[in-house]
């Protein structure tokens, strides 16, 4: 697993973490049952506040990607699998958007609209 956070980015730190971890679960480089580092360790590695990591973990739990258990840390949830098809289509979608010269912001706003 590789995670980066950039305090200079417009995106809040916890959201950068959520995006990074979620992307790797969907992309398949983090698989069900795998244990994530303890929040304290990850915060220390990335030089960020432990509450930022906990907040990211909680959001991912609410989205169903992680199981948080007292004393066992954060584990990639069982239901967080079978994203192969989605990952494939996202790649296609991005390729198509790039062909049409759409910015990432434009594509994500299209996706957001489709949800509403």
């Amino acid at each position: 697993m590789i995670l980066t956070v950039d305090p200079a980015s417009a995106l809040p730190l916890f959201e950068q973490l959520v995006t990074g971890i979620r992307g790797q679960i969907i992309g398949g480089s983090l698989s069900a049952g795998e244990r994530l580092p303890a929040a304290r360790e990850l915060a220390e590695s990335l030089d960020i506040n432990v509450h930022t990591v906990l907040r990211a973990y909680q959001i991912l739990r609410d989205e169903g990607f992680l199981d948080l258990r007292r004393g066992r840390g954060a584990i990639v949830a069982d239901r967080a699998r079978d994203y192969d098809e989605l990952a494939r289509r996202v790649t296609q979608l991005v390729a198509e958007a790039q062909r049409l010269g759409l910015t990432p912001a434009a594509l994500s706003s299209l996706i957001r609209e489709a949800y509403e």
Binding site: I2, L3, T4, V5, D6, A8, S45
Partner: peptide
Amino acid sequence: PLGVDETAVWIRQ
């Protein structure tokens, strides 16, 4: 590529 203030971690089994 790594930003000036960017921090990163790589964890593997």
